[in-house]
Amino acid sequence: MAFAWKAAGLTYNRYLAVASRVVRRSLKEEKRIAAERRGEMDLRFAKWQNGKQGEVKQLSTANEAAMAEHASGSSS
C-alpha cells in the first residue's frame, strides 16, 4: 500500500495536521474560531552541535522546508 502523501514527503503527523486543518476550516463560523485555536502552533527550535546552540528558527517553516527537501530527494 503506497500513500500519496508519503510520496510527497509528508510525515504522518503532517498529513494529519493538513487534514485536520481542512476539517476545521470547513466548520461554521462560530465553531471554526474555537476549533482553529486548537490547531495553532507557534514554536521555535534550535539545533545544537558540540554543546553550542545553533540558530533559532520557526518550527513550522523549518518543517515545511525539510519536507519539501525530502520530497524532491525521493522523487529524483
Partner: peptide, 30 residues
C-alpha cells in the same frame, strides 16, 4: 550541552495543542 541535539522554545504560553506535539514529533523523527 554536549548531549543536546534539539531544543524547542515557545512552550507553556497556553495549553499545549496537538499541533505542537505533532510538529515536535516530526522534527524528532527527522
Amino acid at each position: 550541552g554536549k548531549n543536546i541535539v534539539l531544543s524547542f522554545a515557545g512552550i507553556g504560553k497556553d495549553v499545549p495543542t496537538f499541533a505542537d506535539a505533532a510538529a515536535i514529533a516530526d522534527q524528532i523523527t527527522m
